[in-house]
């Protein structure tokens, strides 16, 4: 194992370059000093900015009342365990919805690209599906499915609010995600398809073994972004009466006449989103690094 740092100066054949020149050392020290300066400027500007924000809010004429109804520590303490309990339901819905959305979205995308005249109606139905469910406001669909479907009183159709709410969310998000997958499939260069077909792979083998793996890799960042959006939209099942984090907040709020429980729920949702958002950033950065290796800009 070489000493740390020596690798940097090793050339391709493993030999060592001579020590850096005066000029290079000067450049490095200048860059370091600029970097320190940037750090200080960033810290200072953050401090000034947040002070202004806090002072501006606190000095507002309605601040005492607002603080009372939105930031009451006693209400927050009472609400926290209940909201957390509700969040457990959101988490379970999220996991089920995410898995269903990925499967359904991918299936729709693939059915839209399938070839052959027999499949014409399938392609049409899939296009119609994405058009309808991408355009429909999620909350309207929640009402239609959550209240309309049980109203039919059909045998064997679930009436559970959570199941119906999850179904509505899956339907809307799958329409979005199928378009993401389709864009990914189309982003794979035609020469890849040509190379696979030239080897004798069939259309389906080409899609499965050559196009899809590359497509999925290309669309991982936007998919993670959709996951972040899904994470908070699972809170909308509360409009059907499912006792999730938002609904719990609503109940505590009604009992206390205070809005603080909503803030508690909001903070919990934000905390839940942070790891996924960082994961999405990381995946995006990695994808960019792959595409422009070695560039400084």
């Amino acid at each position: 194992m070489s000493a740390p740092g020596t690798e940097v100066f090793g050339d391709a054949r493993g030999g060592l370059l001579p020590a850096p020149s005066e000029v290079e050392l000067g450049r490095r020290s200048y860059r370091r000093s600029r970097q320190r300066r940037s750090t200080w400027v960033a810290l200072l500007s953050t401090l000034v900015f947040s002070t202004l924000l806090v002072v501006g809010t606190v000095s507002a004429p309605g601040w005492p009342r607002t603080q009372q109804s939105f930031l009451d520590p006693d209400v927050a303490r009472r609400a926290f365990p209940l909201v957390l309990e509700g969040l457990w339901l959101n988490l379970r819905v999220l996991v089920v919805a995410a898995v269903c959305v990925l499967a359904l979205g991918l299936a729709v995308a693939l059915l839209r690209t399938v070839r052959g005249p027999v499949w014409a109606p399938v392609r049409f139905v899939m296009a119609l599906y994405t058009d309808v469910f991408r355009g429909m406001p999620l909350i309207v669909l929640l009402y239609i499915i959550g209240f309309g479907v049980p109203g039919l009183r059909l045998q064997g159709v679930p009436t559970d609010k959570v199941v119906l709410g999850t179904t509505a969310i899956v339907l809307v998000y799958s329409a979005y995600v199928s378009e993401v997958f389709r864009a990914g499939i189309e982003s794979v260069h035609p020469s890849q398809r040509a190379a696979a077909r030239a080897l004798g792979l069939t259309h389906r083998q080409t899609t499965r073994l050559v196009v899809l793996p590359q497509a999925v890799r290309n669309v991982t960042p936007p998919l993670l972004n959709d996951l972040v959006a899904l994470q908070k939209d699972v809170g909308l099942i509360s409009v059907l009466g499912a006792i999730d984090a938002v609904r719990q907040a609503q109940i505590v709020s009604a009992n206390t006449g205070n809005f603080t429980p909503y803030i508690v729920a909001a903070l919990l949702f934000v905390l839940l989103a942070v790891p996924t958002a960082r994961l999405a950033d990381w995946a995006t950065a990695r994808a960019r690094r792959r595409q422009q290796a070695g560039s400084v800009l």
Partner: peptide
């Protein structure tokens, strides 16, 4: 597909599959 199985093609831009290793490209 059966015809293409009997013909090998090499392209100007290689067209190797970037998600597969050299070995997997050859054995696909």
């Amino acid at each position: 597909d059966a015809v293409r199985r009997r013909i090998g093609v090499v392209f100007q831009a290689y067209n190797l599959f970037p998600h597969l290793s050299v070995l997997d490209n050859v054995t696909l």
